[in-house]
Structure formats: C-alpha cells, structure tokens
Write a protein that binds this DNA or RNA. Sequence first.
DNA 1: CGAAGATACCTCGGGTTCGATGTATAACGG
DNA 2: CCGTTATACATCGAACCCGAGGTATCTTCG
Lengths: 177, 177
Amino acid sequence: MLELAILGFLYDAPLHGYVLRRHIAALTGHVRPVAESTLYPAIKRLEKAGLLARATEPGAVAAPRHVLTLTEEGRQELRRRLADPGQREITDENHWFTLLAFLRHLDDPAAQAAVLRRRLAFLEEPASFFYDGDRPLAAEELDDPFRRGVLKIARATSRAELAWLRDTLASLEAVGR
Amino acid sequence: MLELAILGFLYDAPLHGYVLRRHIAALTGHVRPVAESTLYPAIKRLEKAGLLARATEPGAVAAPRHVLTLTEEGRQELRRRLADPGQREITDENHWFTLLAFLRHLDDPAAQAAVLRRRLAFLEEPASFFYDGDRPLAAEELDDPFRRGVLKIARATSRAELAWLRDTLASLEAVGR
DNA sequence: CGAAGATACCTCGGGTTCGATGTATAACGG
DNA sequence: CCGTTATACATCGAACCCGAGGTATCTTCG
C-alpha cells in the first residue's frame, strides 16, 4: 500500500522524500499515519529494486534533498500493480482507496474496468460480520447496538460504492464503444 | 486489532484456537484475512502476558485442542483497551469496527459514549483525501472519476456513521438520565 | 544572538505479520 | 483401504513497520 502510493505519486512528477511524505499523509494519513522510519526504508527498497532513481539537489530551504524519479521499470511496475492487484488491494478499503487514487494512471479503460469489476464481484458476494452458524445476521436481528452500527455503516458504504461502481463501469464501457 | 478480537471473543466464552480462528475470519476475514501463523503466536503472547490460560482437552473431532480462557487480568485488559483505545483504533475503519464489535463488553454507558464521542470528533474534523495546497478538494472539483469515487464513497460512509453515532449517543445518554 | 520550529534525511532495535512447511487425528467418499 | 478434506496446533525465516533517537540546515521571532 505504501509502495503503491510512492509509485503513484512519482508517476506524475519527481518529488523528494519530504514532499512525498506530505502527499502520503494527505492521502491516507488521517486514517493510517505513515512514520518516517517506514517511508525512507521503503524508498530505499524501491531504489534497490531499480524502480526509482535519486538525484541529490541542494536544498531549496534547508538540508540537501534527494529528488526521486521513477525509472521506466518503475512506471511499468506501477501499471502492473494497478492492473493486477493482490486480493488485499481489492478487499481492504484502505488499500482499495489507495489503488483508486492512482487508477487513472492505467490508461486503458478496459483494464480499469476489469479492476472495478473485481471490486464489484467482491462487494456483491453476501458477507456479514456476524453469523448465526453459517447464516449471516441482519442488523435487525442483533441486540447489540454497536454491532448493529457496524452493519448499518457497512451497508451504507456498500450501497454507495455499488452505485458508483455501476455508473463508472457504464461510462468506461461507453468509451470503449 | 487481532489481540482485541481474541480478547473480545474469549470474554464471552472460552474457546479453542481453531474455533477462535473461524470467529475472527467471520468478523474481519473477508476484508483482512488472518493467517494461522499470526494467530497462534498472538495467543502465545497473550498467554505469556498472563491475559489468558490454556487447558488441553482431548479433541472432540480430531487432534487435542487447547481451550483458552481469559484470566481476570485478561478481562480487565479488554475493558481497558475498549475504554482507552489508541488513535489507530479510532481512525482506521478496520480497527474501529473491531472495537465496536466488542464495545458492549464495556458495561458503563458513559464509558461507551466517551469512545463514540472520540470517533465523532474525528469524523467531524474536515478532512479530504486530495488537496490543492492546504484546501481540501470536493468531489466536483476533480477530473479523475476514480478519485471522485473515493470521495463520494467516503462521504456516504461518513454521513451514515455520523447519523448512527448521534442516534446512539442520544440513547446512551437517555440511559444515563 | 539564541531558541524554536520547519525542512530534510537516516539508523537501530524490538516487535508483528505472513507464507511455507510440518505434524497428528478423524471422517468421508469411492 | 486409500486419498482428500477438515480438525488442530506449531515453527521458521524473511519482510515489514514503528518509536526513539540522531544529524544537519535554514528561517523566524523575541
């Protein structure tokens, strides 16, 4: 998820670590803050893997900074990760939102639609958080107001996302025709 | 999050690892599956910390199994974690839902309300995923349909949750009077 | 001029997570 | 009776993440 965000932001323009960090904080920081000691090693990993290159520049404001640029392999890797995401990227909202934030970088509408359809399939399969044996429980069947809340909120999210997915898929398919 | 789920499920009744695993899979597994190699060490950690005790029983169906029971410290620890959750538990939906699933175990309505109010405060502060400098961007201002989707879905979730939080807080306060 | 704060990057250690793999037992279908 | 599946638990190594702490520069305010 972190690596996807790094690749995604750098796909648009070269950035140095500090600015990159603020971009990531804006995207996911209110939900899941990312520590410096996680970001910098991640940058190193990606550099070591040949996905990005760094150039040292005298700092505009303070200490010298490392401007990060995606290599051609890095650009390919981002497109690969967007087109063929792992299951966690589909099911976990945090990961999914990060993916959506950069899905435009996949320039083929059919490939974008394929990713949205995977999410659609996931949301369409009946799933609850609470079960009576194998039978999923509806909100109304629960005594616990907090568990009822979980279901109500999840259902509202699901409805909104399903509507958006169907709309967006329709317009992506309209482009293809 | 995993430890909270373990403590939460065992608070109701002693369980052995295998059943516990299926409970956790039902609760969060569709979004974020938990590997066996994460669960069993977690159980060991909690046991080592004195929060739960295990008793070996001959397996009803197959191999012998370890029935896990919360100790008094374990029960206190769950209530402590529910009453005074970390910031991640408040901001990250996955963690928050896990916490909500067990919040009923906190039997003081005022303490439950205090937790809900922390979530309310978090949701009420204006936050976006995308910014123009410091200014949060509205969905309508974005060209990217996928980023628009992120905002639309997040807004729908937020609306539903705010409504539920206010309702539930009102009824919790009614109990207190 | 000196303290505070923002910019900018880094390392280390401890802890968590996961995939792969291993070990048993029992039930069930063919 | 034999392979598959489900039950039931465990270990190992690699990877990842975080908090704490460190280094250095520049600006701003008193």
